[in-house]
Write a protein that binds this DNA or RNA. Structure first.
Lengths: 150, 150
DNA sequence: CTGTTACAGTTGCCCCTGCAATAACCCGCG
DNA sequence: CGCGGGTTATTGCAGGGGCAACTGTAACAG
């Protein structure tokens, strides 16, 4: 096998491992958050991302980028949470095309409640994955990532 | 910050990085495979998984596990590919509840055509991700995973 | 001022997915 | 044999996502 073919194979293997680990973690988080707080992973992620912003607000396009969803999915994601009173939309004063999204008190509270659920489920998922031979190396690598990797 | 909180934070960071990288790669693969071969990532993965089995066949439940999808999604995934003549179902002779899925000639051909597309897109996605400061460490870690990690 | 182009979000439509209920089947026990 | 309990796969239904078309706004050229 040539060096180039080797590289292709290595990337494919890495991708399969990554995809598998991702699916397992997401599945676990989804169930835990859905069962206890009526939240999907995307919804939790949005609350979490907003909470880490100064002033708790972001533009739609930034949200879209942060949660890695299309514009339309972002619109609906924000709408769902807005209907539940967890966040608010308001027009950007200087550019009326822009729309800001801001966490409400209720949203901050729900996030505080859901965070332990999330953290526990994540720890369990990693724990379990660490026990599978094909996933363990990646789990260990994850733990060693630089902290600041935002 | 306590050690325990530190660990929670590290896991959360790792998960965000993993999720972000996964989403970017999947998005890229999806577009490339869809555009050139009318295949989704799940569909390609199934073809690929089948091709690596002796005799190119698997039971539904094994398929389900391999592509990390629910049973119902697996049924439909297999049905779609069967309708396109890329694989065949046939009853397990010893247990008629079981159903085997087997790659056809056409399926093997399409897989051969699509593999370069997949590999190129994957390489590009990793290349691009490697250029982002927050993803680069994980990309490097992926490259170092043991080859055999199936 | 007006027409053109670029940008930010939203909406209609359709596909894929998971859950729960269901059908078909195997196995063991009375 | 025949019934009950556990598997394996399929189907009805509703939710979430992407694409493309559309609305409203800004920016710029003439």
């Amino acid at each position: 096998m040539s060096l180039a073919e080797d590289a292709v194979e290595a990337r494919a293997t890495g991708w399969r491992t990554l995809a598998s680990l991702h699916a397992r973690i997401e599945d676990r988080l989804e169930r835990a958050l859905r069962a206890r707080h009526q939240l999907s992973v995307s919804e939790f992620t949005l609350l979490e991302v907003l909470s880490r912003q100064d002033g708790f607000h972001l533009r739609m396009s930034q949200v879209s980028n942060a949660v890695v969803l299309s514009q339309s999915a972002t619109t609906r994601l924000v709408s769902r949470l807005e209907n539940r009173g967890l966040l608010q939309r308001y027009l950007c004063p200087t550019d009326r095309r822009g729309i800001y999204t801001e966490l409400t008190e209720a949203g901050q509270r729900l996030l505080r409640e859901a965070t332990p659920t999330h953290d526990t489920a994540l720890a369990e998922a990693l724990e379990e994955a660490g026990g599978r031979a094909e996933l363990a190396p990646l789990v260990r690598a994850l733990a060693k990532l630089p902290k600041s990797a935002q």
